[in-house]
Write a protein that binds this DNA or RNA. Sequence first.
DNA 1: CGCACGTGGTTTTTT
DNA 2: ACCACGTGCG
Length: 734
Amino acid sequence: MNSTLLANLNPPQLQAVTLPHQSALILAGAGSGKTRVLTTRIAYLVSHDGVPANRILAVTFTNKAAKEMLTRLTSMLPIHPQGLWIGTFHGLCNRLLRTHYYEANLPKTFQILDSSDQLSAIKRLMKLMNVDDEKYPPRDVANFINRHKEQGQRAAEADTFSVHDKQKAAIFAEYDLQCQREGVVDFAELMLRCYELLSRNAELREHYQARFQHILVDEFQDTNKLQYQWLKLLAGTKNALFAVGDDDQSIYAFRGADVGNMRELTRDFHVETVIKLEQNYRSHGNILDAANALIQNNRNRMGKNLWTAADGGEPIRVYEAPNDVEEAGYIVGEIQQLHREGMDLKDIALLYRSNAQSRVLEHALVSAGLAYRVHGGLRFFDRLEIKHTLAYLRLMENTDDDNALLRIINFPTRGIGARSIEQLQEVAIQQGTTLWDAAARAGGKVTAFVALIESMRNAARSLSLPETIAHVLQHSGLRALYENETGAKRAEAQERLANLEELGNAAVLFVHENEDDSLTSFLTHASLESGEHQAGDQDDALHLMTVHAAKGLEFHAVFISGLEEGLFPHQNSQREASGVDEERRLMYVAITRARQRLYLSFAQSRMLHGKVNYGVASCFLEELPEELLHWITPKRTAFAPTFTPQNNPFAAYVSPVSRPVPTPPRNQRAMASSTQRTVSGTEWRIGQSVTHAKFGDGVIVNLESSGADARVQVKFRTAGVKWLALEYAKLTAV
DNA sequence: CGCACGTGGTTTTTT
DNA sequence: ACCACGTGCG
């Protein structure tokens, strides 16, 4: 290892990198060189301490982080480290389970269910069990199952205080049996099954404990209970757990992450000194000062203050817009200015709390002709046509996979209707077999389907992976289906074809890059690394994303929009103080993405769920020191606690709302824009609050007039949505 | 079997 | 406002 690698580290970084063989917690602030410390530590262990690479295990959350770590590491070491394990929690568990499938009681070719596969498996099961899906929404059941698995609990250990939970636990138990029958595991199961394997099988546990002297974990604040238990199990009593994390950037509590693991770790592993990386190499002083001031409002921090050698830099710009459209207009104007001054679009990010906010921004960007890309959204392997193709491949690999069979038995349509499928399911239940076995004994068109899959399996034996995929596309009729599409759906079908083409490319690439180029391996890759797979990385385009998606990234200029109470911090978080704390950490993450320039903006009114909402500035704005801010619009001293359209004190000087019509008006919209004047002289409009003698309070959500009989659709607070004839209904405007 | 329409929901999301 | 999903008709 090059000695300058160590020379370039600051003192705490150096201390972390050169720690003796002991467990450690590294509190690494935003932009403090966290990945650098992790990778240099590994390089140091290998080349200085002479630790064989195969005695090291490095764990991340995302494939991107794992890849990044490996790339950086290989550039530091003279030779490629042999036997080093770097991967995501799930990827590593998969690896262990594939190796020890027998001991884990799994079929060799077990398949992985992603979230949507899991949901359909649950829906199917619930239908079978005759459970009311109104009373027990499958999504809730899925959450129940995953939450428990992530706590390390099986159905038998689930809390069943309420009848509701009892039922969910019963579904949970059946679901696990179904998965076992079908040879599939969901994401949480990968972790839990692996944990159980290691905790029950002393021989295996001791083998891996003896192997991995050093375990390094990235983003430790995001670990859930089960992941921490898994790490503890592997660490045993002798190995060193080197955990890097930042409690101030813990923003995934909602999906089970437990910051408490950081304190637990210091206790469980007797960590005496927590090393803090507080020097920030990313942002100018004002930005850091703002972030520090904000986060100080949180309780229960481990405590850390970022500082920088850079100067204060520019003040933080704050803008108050009359509405969301004008907020977007301001942002676009500033971006154009920055662009003119020479900043690349790709160095600018536009952040928001929730995805719905991107619409208005996108509209403004399109109008201005600015290139942008939205991060997040549908990923490559999640596309319908890809999932269908993969389902053929999965069924070929593992005919017990009922999920896969159901997805494709009639897609493309081959005359096997709902009735036939029901019959198959009945037979399967009666005889205690999988659908495939039932199908094999059925007749008619089902027989042809079984023969089709069998012939594909045979063909695959002598074909390479890309050839197999081509074969499936051809003989399943998927390609023809999209090729023959005409009319309105033509364009969409062409895109789907292009994606199928891309799947072929992905397979070619996969074969090149992986020693194990089996179908199972490729399918695992598809489930576990459904990755962004988005082209256009090189393009000079703005980045639009949620604050969550921005974690770990940095930009020259950052715009944080929609800083309003109820939006950011989000409404649903405001019930508990801990919720607002997490929102504050989110804001902290958002602020610390910026290198040079930071814009904060909010709007007095905003279109939300089809209604105009009036908001007040986010409390986070008031938590930032005034001297760091430059108000583009004048700062008002106080904000009213709540605004309604009626009492909005600013309504008087809100400039006329110029809301461009975003898309060609549809008939709905044409109606919506009209108002209805009736005999009584009252003017009815959408959004009008009304009261009805029988139904109570409500709001008009739609208007319709055909000749004399005008009707309004009213959403009542308690009575639901109703159409009422204005001539007869006793409706009063509020 | 496939499309049209109606209904409910709407924070954040990786694996 | 918009999207995803489920039901009912041609």
